[in-house]
Design a protein around this nucleic acid. Structure first.
Lengths: 221, 221
DNA sequence: GTCTATACGTTGATAGAC
DNA sequence: GTCTATCAACGTATAGAC
């Protein structure tokens, strides 16, 4: 789950990362994710992270310039993971198939990386100022590009004329919900945790409703 | 927005709340909402709240037993507001009309009470342990009752046989998104803030897609 | 590279003057 | 009822021994 991060670290030494450094940085980031996902940036303490990694807290400051640096490394890690997960969704794709694939991929991301989703959600809720620096132009390009694809599909009569921007928000909101609100979902359904099958059922329902709602016929039906 | 709270306060004196007490408690809760909505429970400091109300922080401890007491008063306030906003949605309702009304009401709640939505979201993401005590049996009753309504509609052929539980999650996730992820929506759309018209457009799209996706004909179409 | 010791501000909370 | 003064605990961060 944790990919190469030294290059994005707040400690740009230029040197190739040593084995020990790389191992410790990864362990710290992993432990930091646990805390940030539960308490957000302000609510997380370096002390607790250090205890969870099993390192003296001074080491955290050795590997990462400060708390904000560690947090941004975690965020960068998440965005990188994000980028590597989602394919492009182009005009040439079959609308129904591409939309279904995207919904299921995003749900699978929520299932496999619930902490990443929650850290991201907390950051956005908190105003998202730490994302401004990290979300590069590619991000806006992705968003506008996908909106353009939906618009092109609509114009070509391949799907209903839905507002492409709000369609993206519908996809994001409905899939992200299964990561961020998992504790509530478990509460109301009486489950202890959501398993793979739960996510598949959720995916089936989302795909069916959203595709039909956009005037598309599900690929498997 | 802030309703009678003394009855739920952590300071159950039994006495009728004095005018000064009532005014101060409301002011404190309002200021507390600002901070909790941005930083969650752990990330919020009593000091900052006190400064924002313009009171010495000792007063906060006079009106509320401690930080957790203040937080739970805020949560109770939110749930009360929630309860008073949403009507029941019964089997006898017209499915299309009732669903559309619910979607628009929930969106309107997101628009008018973004802070309440965010505090609630942060609490759920953090594990929601403070909600266990507050979400009474009525809550589960509401959830199962609505799921039963959707199931009855499906059984009667009034709508497609969608999974009722996941339909509720779709409604929650897609509407809550406009409160919690507002900062991201503003970023990608280039807006400074979402106005009433934005929410109406969002509502139109959600109603169109979800209703059609469930095999319902929109009431206005 | 790694850890101990520590500096120093901020936290939640309280005691007690007014 | 209200506020000033204060406490112990915890926060981030650093200096410097090993």
């Amino acid at each position: 789950m944790t990919v190469e991060v030294s290059a994005h670290s707040a400690h740009p030494t230029g040197k190739p990362a040593g084995r020990i450094r790389q191992k410790n940085e990864e362990a710290i980031i992993q432990a930091a994710e646990d805390e940030f996902a539960r308490h957000g940036f302000k609510g997380t303490s370096m002390n607790t992270i250090a205890q969870n990694v099993g390192l003296p807290k001074a080491n955290l400051h050795y590997y990462f310039s400060n708390k904000l640096g560690l947090y941004q490394a975690v965020l960068a890690n998440i965005l990188e993971l994000w980028d590597s997960t989602f394919n492009s969704l182009t005009v040439d794709d079959d609308p129904a198939e591409a939309l279904a694939r995207y919904i299921r991929a995003k749900l699978e991301f929520s299932r496999r990386n619930p902490k990443a989703s929650r850290i991201y959600a907390m950051e956005v809720i908190s105003g998202g100022e730490n994302l401004s620096q990290l979300l590069n132009q590619d991000y806006l390009t992705w968003f506008r590009g996908r909106a353009a694809v939906f618009e092109a599909w609509s114009a070509a009569g391949k799907m209903d004329p839905v507002d492409p921007v709000h369609l993206i928000f519908l996809l994001w909101g409905s899939t992200q919900h299964y990561a961020d609100f998992a504790s509530q979902i478990c509460r109301v359904t009486g489950r202890s945790r959501l398993n793979k099958q739960d996510f598949e059922i959720a995916g089936d329902n989302l795909v069916r409703i959203i595709l039909k709602g956009c005037g598309l016929t599900p690929p498997t039906a």
